[in-house]
Design a protein around this nucleic acid. Structure first.
Lengths: 322, 322
DNA sequence: ATGAAAGCGCTAACAA
DNA sequence: TTGTTAGCGCTTTCAT
């Protein structure tokens, strides 16, 4: 640990009195080396603090031991949670995570896919918006897409349909009959899945659903749209994500209205802040923490598709209609 | 882009009718190759979609083109913002970011430092708590520590003293005379710096400061401590971070007290949510977005120390004392 | 069960 | 200005 030069496999071999190949074997196929030599080699490895050089190994094996995670914005708690999940699982498989934050720029995705295609064994791409062009850049590297089904590629989908049904039932139970649904960005699979779920649940539950488009799925854009929501006369709002739900609450407040007394609000994602705000948000929680464990093994398993299901978490932003 | 096998430097050389070394030169030292051959080589590179293999390059140059970023919890918006900043700067230097989320476990830091010491050209470590043991594991790899001065190593520090003075002045102007300060975790440099700043500003401004320890710097732990804060009779609270500030607000609310009418609250960090909650939080904003641009160039520049300064952002969680 | 030798893709002297 | 050569640290046949 104190030596300026790192130990190489040759140093280990010398110290153990064997050939480098034997050291390599004790590391990679321990059963193919005699127990006593193995012990000697392992001791030498420990003594020298030897850590194999992945670059050298990768050069010959063709595997890098890296996976790239591509997200639009690591600052968004939802994506951060996804990244964390992948990082955890990666570590267990002795993989390293290369983080790419595209800053919501699809072009950056393409650039990243190109420049990293040699550096990684696979891509986990969390990219709500479409990205046709980057698919070519992926080349033959395995990729799994989160919340975006892509032909010929694997994907893991966070489904919300059952939870949406629960949410509408919850609202119905509270006496709500008119709901505004604030949709997500066009081109986002999640936006489509949630919209479909809302429409379907609306039909089966008898809830009147008014679909609204706020422009951007952000806090600010949503606050601006709140007067329209109020004017529509609904008593409840379901927003595409928690930030938007907070935007509704904030906008309502500037109008002198309060949640849940005047209007009930439900979000999606269940970001950590959802539980910290006032009122604590009723929201559809997504099992983001499980995504890594599901997605990583799918790398190199062909174009499979796995679904994970969110569920309704009832807190205090929903109440009986007045 | 369609070929199963990736092009190597040999393919490029063949197509351009030159030796591999010449290709290498046009990439790394373009001035040392004749303009016309350079053009030919560049064309070949483009045609083949050639991207140099970093592993192979690193094997000989000794540089990997990777930097590791070690954070306790990427899910914390403050750390996410720091990571994003590093990622952005790294990309501009054609570096890749290896993300390590230790989950607040110092042991993981050590493990990461050891296993990555061969894979990276440097470490950016964002580790509020102390980590003596990992320093050895760093070996001779350059490292810059964020918010933790470490002897023999570089660091960038987010200083808040001037902003704290502003915060206390702001509170004084509003008529507050008694302030509770909810400190950060022991062993954290930031906690020390902020406590010192509060004490000093308290003395010079004549504000009575009551220091409280909430245990963990979290929302939950803080909510629990709120009754004590109220009992102390202060009219304002300064919390070590925004999550704690939100905890104060939430705890106050369950007591039937409101912010800023009954008590004023100030936080640190200015996480995005701070502006979205009710009331929008008065907080000390930190220039996290600049950290990457400052820290990365410091890698390999020896044990320098740079300071960046936060500033007070007045929103609506502070008001005139009743 | 172990050693010898070749080679992954690239760069860095050194020659020419 | 360009080519030749050697070799970074490791794994993997192929011998032994």
């Amino acid at each position: 640990m104190e030596r300026g030069q790192r130990a190489t496999i040759l140093d280990v071999a010398a110290r153990a009195g064997v050939h480098a190949a034997t050291v390599s074997r004790t590391i990679n196929v321990p059963d193919k080396v005699a127990p006593d030599t193995r012990l000697r080699v392992e001791a030498a490895i420990r003594d020298l603090g030897f850590v194999p050089n992945r670059a050298a190994r990768g050069l010959i094996t063709g595997r890098t031991g890296n996976v790239a995670v591509i997200v639009p914005d690591i600052t968004n708690p939802h994506f951060a949670s996804l990244v964390r999940s992948v990082e955890r699982s990666a570590r267990q498989s002795d993989l390293q995570v290369l983080l790419v934050d595209t800053g919501e720029h699809p072009d950056e995705e393409v650039r990243a896919a190109e420049s990293l295609s040699r550096e990684v064994d696979g891509f986990i791409v969390v990219s709500p918006r479409r990205l046709h062009r980057s698919l070519g850049a992926l080349g033959s590297i395995p990729a799994v897409f989160v919340n975006r089904p892509v032909p010929e590629h694997a994907s893991v989908l966070l489904r919300t349909a059952p939870a949406v049904t629960d949410a509408l039932a919850h609202l119905s139970d509270l006496g709500h009959t008119h709901l505004a649904y604030l949709g997500g960005p066009a081109g986002s699979w999640a936006a489509g899945e949630r919209r479909t779920a809302v429409r379907h649940s609306g039909r089966t539950s008898g809830m009147q659903v008014l679909e609204l488009d706020v422009g951007e799925p952000t806090f600010e854009a949503t606050t601006v749209a709140v007067p329209d929501i109020v004017a529509s006369g609904v008593s409840a709002v379901l927003a595409f994500n928690d930030q938007m739900a907070l935007g509704v609450i904030a906008g309502l407040r500037t109008l002198g209205l309060s949640v849940p007394e005047d209007i009930s609000v439900v979000g999606f994602d269940d970001v950590p802040m959802a539980a910290m705000v006032a009122p604590p948000l009723t929201t559809i929680s997504l099992p983001t923490a499980e995504v890594g464990a599901v997605a990583l093994p799918m790398l190199g398993e062909g174009p499979a598709r796995r679904e994970l299901f969110g569920e309704l978490v009832v807190r205090h932003s929903t109440a009986r209609v007045r």
